[in-house]
Design a protein around this nucleic acid. Structure first.
Length: 888
RNA sequence: GGAAGCAUAGCUCAGCUGGGAUGAGCGCUCGCCUGACUAGCGGGAGGCCAUGGGUUCGAGCCCCAUUGCUUCCACCA
């Protein structure tokens, strides 16, 4: 076997090869196994129209980390994948494509259109799956689902029928948001408000006098931002308390153009302070007016067609576009002297989040889900902590929505989606809701019924995702075993669209929450903090990053330096730094393999001549294992990997490997060399395991070449904390050495060691502890400023006082510590230290002298402080002694 | 109008339930091609933790106010 490995790590080829291997071995696959505890995550299904973007990359990296971690811990880990039909997004795309071919949606007809849609799905639906694989996602692809597959369709129909029977799904006339371009109603959540500069048109209507004549002197003035809606006015309202208008309440006004009589009604909805205190009421085109209309029994007159042109109720303006009509109406009003003035006005205009068209509130027959009862268990679950939101502050956002919930408009005038299972009798109009088309009308017996043409909001099926993917409505073993799922990972931006709806659906259909924990992440923004968007052209393609730096580097970048739920900025520099880390591990492993020679037979831990350095790194590793595991259990993914990163780079590479080199190069002591090699290899392996969830590819690649018999790191055991590997004494010892070495390095710069020479540093000390640490043997460390090699050794002759002796080019120098430093500098440093220690002591004394602290603080804390008191007192004494030496 | 978040090194951010800012990456600077790694090694300079009060033995962290930025919700004609 060749040990020749490239000097730099190149993920190209390696990643694809390993992913294929994992697939072949079926490591991602999970089946019901009652001997193991399940751990389940359902993927937020990406749209079939979608391409992998940074948000997906982050979301799926987090899920993969959790899944791989739990899998290594021995859980039966299932990551359930699938895609979303994304009704409106897909339909819009297909229409666009048809447009290029010069075909309209209507030309194809419903069936023809759906055929095209399925072709689209077949062609593009798999694209994003392939991209998720590039990222390393360990989903169980054998279980891949689609929101419009047979099972999900059944789930949707079942839920619709059940809820309809319960009376929680109803059909009704309401003001809904209508998108004239997409030609469909949209839910409140899909409306985005945009601030736009507009106008306030002050208009007046003439009063109809008691004798029936239209007054030429008495008018009522009001202001509007949408003059064209006047065609649908059926009243004018004032506040009942408003003194100014008491005389006209109950009178009638004349609506220009249409000669409709408008009653003046009194309603407390009107704000006296705002504008003129008069509001025109258009029940068919404004949600508030609709309510007023209901209270006063006003007629609802719809003046718009679905394409936002004026309909036959608009008199002579019939056929005009809404904005064209606005101009025409204003012009005529002006000519009639009814336009009083025009004011500039900035207001918020509702637009459709998909196409940015200004939505038009319209009165329509739509299907709704009644929310008040349904939402209750969903509120309770979060309140009681049955479902945990991370970070916790997301609960406020959650309750803000649940507290103000309105009925959910679920019908869409689209073709691509789940068709509503409602059938209308052609003869008597009776509605029948059922999974299968009824043969005849239950009321009149007529045998011809027509299905509702509308489809359901795309989130209706997504809401069922955690259990529909596990087989619901059938009572499957999967469902019993894997449900409820454990964690849902998603962005905070779809908390209303999706998270809440899954929660209430889970409780309603399953009688149980869909997941225990929701882990939110923020948005990935560009380096200037802007949202990545197509229109700005500032999107960064994760696949390009993977291509250039590798999936591991991308994953590490996305997961570090960011707290849950916070937005993050994407920097290429950070990807480079991640890539550099991959390279660092690669080279550390290369170093170890070079020294191992041919893959050696496994050496047992017992009987090893472990030296203090070995015990030190093992002890450090042991602590790391405990901390990382704790962090991951509390979903602190970024913190966990940061610790692994620091351990590998600083402790393992920069210190341990350097300290162990002399033992490897001068192999006179075989037992010592063996111990070093064993430690190198085993520490590396455990570190790789801790890193594997984050950087699956490189860890696997190294793991496999490091030990030929183990087939994969991803099914190896997660390292566990071992008490017997906690070597506190050795830790202290090596930390002392590190401090000494750093100290020597600092003075070294002033020693003018000529480049390319070797230096030997002998350390002489009366203090047994320091002696011991240096007698670890020949400690090698690189780059003591100018010296190409430096060896630290115990001096055999011994010189009083703390000192180092340096051998440069054959000449030996014994340098007491105190002389190595600039006395003025050192004095200053020591004085600072003294001051700090005095401060510390004051602090500790303050605490220990405080009765409230002593009575309230836990005993461990008090002991800790007592320990510090002792330590600081000692240190202060030493500092004082050194100071007096320097000054003396 | 209501709500939430953020303000810590030049930049981007970590700092867990109040207990020493040896914070991290990048950048900058000085010295090094040292037998794993220049995608590297070693050193260094950068912070009255936004402002003003308060609670506490002790505040980056808790409370109040102020300023600036971001986001979400509601939408008043």
């Amino acid at each position: 076997m060749s040990r020749e490995l490239a000097k730099t790590y190149d993920p190209k080829g390696i990643e694809d090869r390993l992913y294929q291997k994992w697939m072949d071995k079926k490591y991602f696959h999970a089946e019901v196994d009652h001997s193991k505890t399940p751990f389940t995550i359902v993927i937020p299904p990406p749209n079939i129209t979608g391409q992998l973007h940074m948000g997906h990359a982050l979301d799926n990296t987090m899920q993969d980390i959790l899944i791989r971690y739990k899998r290594m811990q021995g859980y039966n880990a299932l990551w359930q994948p699938g895609t979303d039909h994304a009704s409106i997004a897909t339909e819009v795309k297909i229409i666009e494509k048809l447009k290029e071919e010069g075909i309209g949606k209507e030309d194809l007809g419903r069936d023809g259109f759906l055929k095209r849609a399925w072709e689209w799905k077949k062609e593009y639906g798999g694209r994003i799956i392939g991209q998720l694989k590039k990222l390393g996602s360990s989903c169980d692809w054998e279980r891949e689902r689609f929101t419009m597959d047979e099972g999900c369709n059944r789930a949707v129909t079942e839920v619709f029928c059940k809820m309809h029977e319960k009376g929680w799904i109803y059909k009704g006339s309401r003001i809904i948001n209508w998108c004239p371009v997409c030609n469909t109603s949209i839910s409140d959540a899909e409306v985005v408000y945009e601030e736009q500069a507009g106008h306030f048109w002050h208009i007046k209507y003439p009063v109809i006098e008691d004798d029936g004549s239209v007054s030429t002197t008495r008018f009522v003035e009001f202001a509007t931002t949408r003059p064209e809606t006047m065609l649908g006015d059926t009243a004018v309202a004032v506040n009942p308390e408003d003194e100014r208008y008491q005389d006209i309440i109950g009178k009638k006004l004349m609506l220009p153009f249409l000669n409709r009589e408008l009653p003046v009604v009194a309603d407390s909805y009107v704000d006296m302070e705002f504008g003129t205190g008069v509001v025109k009421i258009t029940p068919a085109h404004d949600p508030n007016d609709f309510e007023v209309g209901k209270r006063h029994n006003l007629p609802e007159i719809n003046v718009l067609n679905d394409d936002a042109t004026i309909n036959e109720n608009g008199g002579k303006f019939c056929g005009m576009d809404r904005y064209e009509a606005r101009g025409a109406i204003l012009k005529e009003l002006e000519e009639m002297g009814l336009l009083v003035r025009i004011e500039d006005h900035v207001h918020n205009v509702g637009t459709h989040d998909r196409c940015k068209t200004t939505v038009e509130p319209m009165i329509k027959q739509q299907w709704f889900v009644k929310m008040d009862e349904l939402i209750r268990p969903a509120v309770e679950a979060v309140k009681s902590g049955d479902i945990q939101l991370i970070p916790k502050r997301m609960e406020k956002t959650y309750f803000n929505w649940t507290d103000n919930i309105r009925d959910w408009c679920i019908s869409r005038q689209l073709w691509w989606g789940h068709r509503i299972p409602a059938y209308y009798c052609d003869k008597c109009g009776e509605i029948a809701v059922s999974a299968d088309a009824p043969e005849k009308c239950a009321k009149c017996g007529h045998d011809h019924l027509t299905q509702d043409p509308d489809t359901l909001d795309t989130w209706f099926s997504s809401a069922l995702w955690p259990f529909s993917t596990l087989g619901w409505p059938d009572e499957t073993e999967d469902l019993k075993y894997f449900y409820p799922t454990d964690v849902l990972v998603t962005g905070y931006d779809i908390i209303f669209f999706w998270v809440i709806r899954m929660i209430f659906s889970g409780f309603e259909q399953m009688g149980e929450k869909p997941f225990r924990t929701v882990l939110f992440h923020g948005l990935v923004r560009d380096s200037q903090g802007r949202k990545m968007s197509k229109s700005l052209g500032n999107g960064i393609d994760p696949l390009e990053i993977i291509e250039k730096y590798g999936a591991d580097a991308l994953r590490l970048t996305l997961i570090t330096g960011n707290a849950p739920g916070n937005d993050m900025r994407f920097y290429y520099e950070r990807v480079e730094s991640s890539r550099n880390f991959a390279n660092k591990i690669w080279n550390a492993s290369r170093f170890i393999m070079m020294n191992m020679g041919e893959p050696a037979e496994e050496i047992g831990e017992e009987g090893l001549a472990l030296e203090p350095v070995d015990k030190w790194i093992l002890s450090k590793l042991n602590t790391l294992i405990r901390e990382v595991t704790d962090n991951m259990d509390s979903f602190e993914l970024g913190i966990a990997v940061q610790k692994v990163y620091d351990f590998i780079w600083d402790e393992f590479c920069d210190w341990y490997i350097e300290m162990v080199k002399p033992r490897l190069y001068n192999s006179d002591d075989q037992a010592s060399k063996t111990a070093a090699l064993w430690t190198l290899k085993n520490v590396l392996i455990d570190a790789l395991k801790l890193l594997h969830p984050y950087m699956p590819f490189i860890t696997e690649e190294i793991f496999c070449s490091l030990q030929s018999q183990e087939e994969s790191i991803m099914i190896s055991d997660w390292p566990s904390y071992r008490q017997e590997r906690s070597f506190l004494r050795e830790e202290t010892k090596i930390e002392t050495i590190k401090e000494a070495v750093r100290g020597i390095r600092n003075v070294r710069t002033e020693m003018n060691v000529s480049p390319g020479r070797k230096a030997l540093v002998y350390v002489v000390s009366e203090k047994e502890e320091i002696m011991d640490t240096f007698t670890e043997g020949k400690l090698f460390f690189a780059s003591l400023a100018g010296a190409s090699d430096v060896l630290l050794q115990k001096d055999k002759e011994g010189i009083a006082g703390d000192a180092v002796s340096v051998v440069i080019s054959g000449a030996t120098l014994y340098i007491p510590f105190a002389e190595l430093v600039d006395i003025a500098q050192e004095t200053e440093r020591l004085k600072k230290e003294e001051k700090r220690l005095c401060g510390e002591l004051a602090r500790v004394n303050g605490m220990l002298g405080n009765e409230r602290f002593l009575s309230k603080a836990p005993q461990s804390k008090i002991d800790e402080e007592k320990g510090k008191l002792e330590k600081y007192t000692q240190m202060l004494e030493q500092v004082k002694e050194r100071l007096s030496q320097l000054q003396g």
